[in-house]
Amino acid sequence: MNLYVVNLLLAIAWMTLTDSFGLGNMIFGFVLSAVALSLIREQVGSVGYFSKLGRILSLLMLFLYELVMSAVRVAILVVKPNMNLKPGIFAYKLQVDRDHEITLLANLITLTPGTLSVDVSEDRSTLYIHALDCSDIDQIRKDIAEGFERKILEAFR
């Protein structure tokens, strides 16, 4: 049985019992039932479910953090009198190959410091990325591979 459905059913049960159907109460019920499920995770075999949930949450946190950092960096760059840009487009070999993973990775790259995904090659093996600072391309490649790509692979595989 899908544990997500169980989680949702428990949340609905919580809403019925407390007799209030607002969104806040539903989220609270959902969290509550997730905690309840996590208590019996060994018994119902939901260890994978929770570690997956944790990894998706950590991907989300990483994303929000990177978004804030990138906006700050662009903002600082804009107010600097001497911008000293080294823009350029470089190719990035993808490890992920499913469509939704590539989409997610491209979107995440667009919202991270100094990089913007421009194009995907026809065979979906290469992502072309525009970067504000191309002085050290290998470092950017490494950051993406060890940051987002690894997290995406962890969360969806």
């Binding site: 823009p87 350029g88 487009i89 913007l116 995904s117 072309y128 191309c134």
Partner: peptide, 30 residues
Amino acid sequence: LTAPISAHLLAKASYAVGYRLTDISVIDEL
């Protein structure tokens, strides 16, 4: 959700029809 998609689409379209990168660009592997 929508901001990166529109930015990506606009960049792709501008590149495809030949708007050039600025002269100080250091690399263009596309």
